[in-house]
Amino acid sequence: MDIINALVAVTNYVIIPATAYGAQLALGALGVTLIYSILRFSNFAHGDTMAFGTGVTILITWGFQAMGISFGPLPTALLALPFGIVITSALMLGTDRVVYRYYRRVRAAPVVMVMVSVGVMFVMNALTRFLIGVDQINFDDGARFIINARQWREMTGLTEPLTLRSTQVITVVTAVIVVAALFWFLGRTRTGKSMRAFSDNEDLALLSGIDPNKVVAVTWIITGALATIAGTLYGLDKSFKAFTYFQLLLPIFASAIVGGIGNPVGAIAGGFVISFSEVGLTYAWKKVVTYLIPNWEPDGLVQLLSTDYKYAVSFTILILVLIFKPTGLFKGKIV
């Protein structure tokens, strides 16, 4: 019985949250990896793009709520999401037109592009703050739980509670749909294949008559969509705060690099590697240990790292991968 309780505790505090978080990181890392493959730079503005997209989605959600529109048991934000995507993608295209296009034409070095993305980061940061401020915002409505602790106890008779929040399920389901759609697009459509060709070998793609402007535009649209979805799911699951999104940059980059930057499958795998390590290492295992080893109560929390150090986990994994396998778990692009 205690073993089952231990399993339930692990599921409740590690597996479920880490899966949802991993899905959010994976979507973020996909955006970073796409920009990296097509435009060939690490986009430092990605965290703030996520914040902007989420901010817009929240505003539209409030608008819907004010009009009395709701999505039944699902969060209203899901209804607002498509509008948020359109606006964010439009902003991406505008930014490309005003900022990035010039540097592509002069064939600027990647590190210059990174610096340019820092400038964009400042502007996006300001836009988000103008739009929605710096405070923490909870915008989740609809049904909160699919399984709550009381139901679970009544259902199973176990002492250990298990809760499954609807946002966690929504995150995973949405992520699966988005990833499936993205892979279908990249693998099956002419435009998607031309993007992969452009990523593989730009010169040959140009020789084959692939229009670089179209490839880049589609990339920004998809990136805007991925960032908005990832940001909104993260915000629904936890809460929205502009600065937190900036800080997500590190685990997102780590996911992309760990998986092999430029490789979409790698980005997804990397997201889960990072999320499970982060949650697993910062979880206080005391309860589980108490279940598993009878008649022994550990003094401390049996927590390997305090949650304040969760970024240290991404960083350490990142460094280990950079040292031992710079191309990442799934072969990424050139090192």
């Binding site: 294949k193 992969r196 060709a197 593989d200 070998n201 010169d203 040959l204 793609a205």
Partner: peptide, 8 residues
């Protein structure tokens, strides 16, 4: 050189 798309 570089005359194919290697991951396709």
């Amino acid at each position: 050189v570089n005359n194919v798309f290697p991951t396709m």
